[in-house]
Design a protein around this nucleic acid. Structure first.
Lengths: 247, 247
DNA sequence: GATTGTAATTAACTTTTGTTATGACAATTT
DNA sequence: AAATTGTCATAACAAAAGTTAATTACAATC
């Protein structure tokens, strides 16, 4: 069950069989299935336990009074949400699904046991949340400084590399189940401008995007064109390929 | 020494005399003075211990190859930087000073001792870092969705409220040691536009800003005008005033 | 296979924001 | 005291991005 999380954590350190077993057990205790475009947690809720995304895409988002919405983060298979959030009195943002999602609800107590015992595992989970924070910082840079072209290309690079890190890419292709409206709310552009910018990325031959399938024709070229430096993902040596179907 | 940190943490929970003493001791072990507009930590460095800002303003920032710069966070008196960051192999961003800064370098080992003993203190420090993460998310919303006017007003509200939480405001006035260029790099606007927008905030009577001194004439009005909702700072009941010099 | 709703595309036009340049002023340095 | 530098302010113009609206493509359902 926890295969994606385990695969991700192993970019940081190698886990013992017991560690992996413990994670797997924890993720089996209580699973939940949520349909597409539905809320998992709502702003104002009392924070509860920890959710692990087993399958599907979710996102953190925040809505302003007048309806404007900002997507703050994407939660992909293997991502943990809200490790210590139960310390806070209420959620300051919502979490919703993009696709149908299967998640494991790991009780706070189970979480405590996981981290109390093994130092390795505890460190790995800490690494997980530090990387999440680093991604959030990079988004600030992305939206604050980059042009529309760079912003969009950067987002696509990030999602592709994160999916690759958990084995969810096939060659230079991956799923991208986002509408242009969702992309717009992610990088702070209008839908129309996202569309224009996607055309541009296509017309220079960097990507293909049809249906829900994204292909990055030359990742290195795209990285250079949009100044994507994967350091902030702290995945260790890049170029390590984890694709399930590589040539 | 750790007075600002203690004052901040007490918004979350009340600390025992021992807790406060331990924090104070930890912050006296090794202090360092850095002059204005200088780097404390540079991208690529090996992450070390934990820094506590005792006095002055610093910021996290990231620079792109072509010189564009994004300020990612402000570090004010009482802020801790990089609680667990030593887990990562290298810094993915830099930390620099805005004003002259005094900071305490707290060794990882001391940090471990602080959190190992008292659950209260450990929780409080965890709260500290959750709030930092929440601020980062709010910045994503701010830059991604809000107009120039709202963005700037929102930033000023946040800085004022954070300073108030550590007792660094006098009535509705606080220090604002930022140049317009720094503000521009914070909210993703050009210097010229920051200037225009400041004029606008002044002309509608919401703020005064002269020299390094900011006055927010009616905080509630400014909050409404820019949709600033202080929830994300998780300071507990607002309206609790901690000003050192209130009428 | 027709119908319906959602998403993508495109165009025309407006607004916002960036760029470049310049002057005023104050703080520092020489 | 003079010169230099950094910051703030303002104007004129250019570029980027938003808005509205109409149209097309696509996918799901009946």
């Amino acid at each position: 069950m926890a295969e994606f999380l385990i695969r991700k954590l192993e970019h940081f350190t190698s886990l013992s069989t017991e560690d992996k077993h413990a994670l797997d057990q924890a993720s089996r205790q209580r699973t939940r299935r949520i349909r597409s475009r539905d809320d998992i947690v709502h702003e104002g809720d009392l924070p509860q336990g920890v959710n692990l995304i087993l399958d599907g895409w979710a996102c953190r988002y925040k809505t302003l009074e007048d309806g404007r919405r900002q997507i703050i983060a994407y939660l992909l298979p293997g991502d943990l949400c809200d490790h210590h959030v139960s310390i806070l009195r209420e959620m300051d943002h919502s979490i919703g699904t993009v696709t149908a999602v299967t998640l494991a609800e790991i009780p706070t107590e189970t979480m405590r046991q996981l981290t109390a015992g093994q130092a390795r595992l505890s460190q790995a989970l800490c690494w997980e949340s530090l990387v999440a924070a680093a991604i959030q910082r990079e988004w600030t840079v992305n939206i604050g400084q980059r042009t529309a072209f760079e912003r969009l290309g950067h987002l696509l690079c990030e999602l592709y590399v994160r999916l690759r890190a958990v084995g969810l890419t096939q060659g230079n292709t991956c799923e991208l189940p986002l509408t242009q409206a969702e992309i717009a709310d992610t990088i702070g552009l209008s839908v129309v401008h996202v569309n224009r910018t996607l055309q541009e990325l296509r017309s220079v031959g960097l990507i293909s995007l049809r249906g829900r399938e994204l292909t990055i024709h030359r990742l290195d070229a795209l990285q250079r064109a949009v100044q994507f430096n994967p350091n902030y993902l702290h995945l260790g040596r890049e170029g390590r390929h984890l694709d399930s179907n590589e040539a």
